[in-house]
Nucleic acid binder design. Structure first.
Lengths: 221, 221
DNA sequence: CAGTCACGTGACCACATGGTCACATGAGTA
DNA sequence: TACTCATGTGACCATGTGGTCACGTGACTG
């Protein structure tokens, strides 16, 4: 919820400010991110930023909103209209698109990760998490009923199992490339990160997920 | 590296101070944890704490040390001398003991988790992580050669796969009980947490791990 | 020309932090 | 009693923060 004044800013100045602010909030948790540092980097007066945003939190929420929108846009643009394949193939596509977003837009990734690590409002964050978790668990339940996923393990456990693998992917890539996640933003690392071939990695992971959780009848390779 | 003076303190006063400091550093990242708050809670003067520790970081490192020691002690005391069982059974035991520590000592768990989330020295922390990761990957490699673990997937991928599952367990338990991890410290939640039956959960998880990664020859149930 | 209006500015405020240091205290000693 | 020595103390300091506000500026308007 920025002010009119913010939107009246010349495009380049506005975008530059957003980028600088993103960098700040992506590299530090909310409390440590510094407005003073942002205005210094942006070369504007402290008072100016308070003509664009109500306060620190307002700016932060705006940035989260921007990133979220961009992530949705990215997913919509890059999610192929899968015509064939089973549940696991679909999941594989989703993982791939998510991972591609993270690699091509580490600033946004870190901002969202930071938000998850120390959320502004724990309550709303917890509720959002609950909704997401339930959605996944329901999906698993459906697949169990449809006979695609084994039914002898609690759907919540399987959902958590999937979630853990997805969540850990960034750390794995960090270990593999030797570049800490927080350094993904740096220009120098962009090429190396873009050069990662995600397909075989995610192939193997979904392979493991399939072996672990596919129903017996379909359980080959 | 506390001073002599610190060790000369009466036992109860010393322990109380440690506990208060633990609470502070377990609930906030290092930069946000406040010495002023600690001394206020402990009812001592600011100057006193600087007669026990060089500075904030010194106190922090000491606390990490204490928790690490206690975790090791806990593991040694609670790790059963497994006489039978395969690789996955051993892994199951390790997960169980680790999870039991976290549930019975959430203060320590949070402190260590906090350290991992925003480590004081990223370099040493990264190196420690690397060593741990390599250890696990080597273990997997050995099991692949021994024919216990499937060899058609990169050992690093499998290692990451295991790690992700272990790392995600706390979040799963938080979702399951509806108690946020940061609230595990609260007295009121202690009983509920202690009451969790970890065995069936970890059974199912290791079951999934086995289905996913056991070599074909042994690959049943 | 005078006036308005949107916007930029940076000195300033209240507050909190980590850390210091001159002093107080009180038990033990000679 | 007089002195030592380990320890406790809290006012104080430099520094940083989020946020405010009286003022400056410059384009546009009547």
């Amino acid at each position: 919820m920025p002010t009119e004044t913010f939107y009246n800013l010349p495009d380049d100045k506005r975008q530059q400010l957003v980028e600088i602010a993103m960098n700040e909030f992506a590299s530090k948790p909310f409390e440590q991110a510094s407005i003073s540092s942002i205005v210094k980097q942006a070369g504007i007066a402290k008072g100016s930023i308070y003509q664009y945003f109500e306060n620190k939190q307002d700016l932060y929420l705006y940035l989260i909103d921007v990133v979220t929108q961009e992530k949705l846009k990215f997913i919509q643009a890059n999610m192929p209209p899968l015509t064939t394949g089973d549940f696991f193939d679909i999941y594989k596509q989703q993982m791939l698109v998510g991972a591609r977003f993270n690699l091509s837009y580490p600033l946004g990734m870190n901002l969202l990760a930071n938000m998850a690590k120390s959320p502004l409002s724990n309550e709303t964050h917890t509720k959002m998490q609950q909704v997401a978790d339930e959605y996944l668990a329901n999906m698993v339940r459906q697949q169990q009923e449809a006979g695609a996923v084994r039914a002898d393990v609690d759907p919540e456990i399987i959902a958590y199992f999937y979630k853990a693998i997805v969540n850990g992917l960034a750390d794995y890539l960090a270990a593999k490339t030797g570049i800490q996640v927080t350094d993904w933003v740096k220009e120098e690392n962009a090429k190396k990160l873009q050069g990662i071939d995600l397909v075989p990695i995610i192939d193997q992971l979904v392979n493991l997920m399939r072996s672990a959780t596919a129903a017996q009848s379909a359980g080959k390779q």
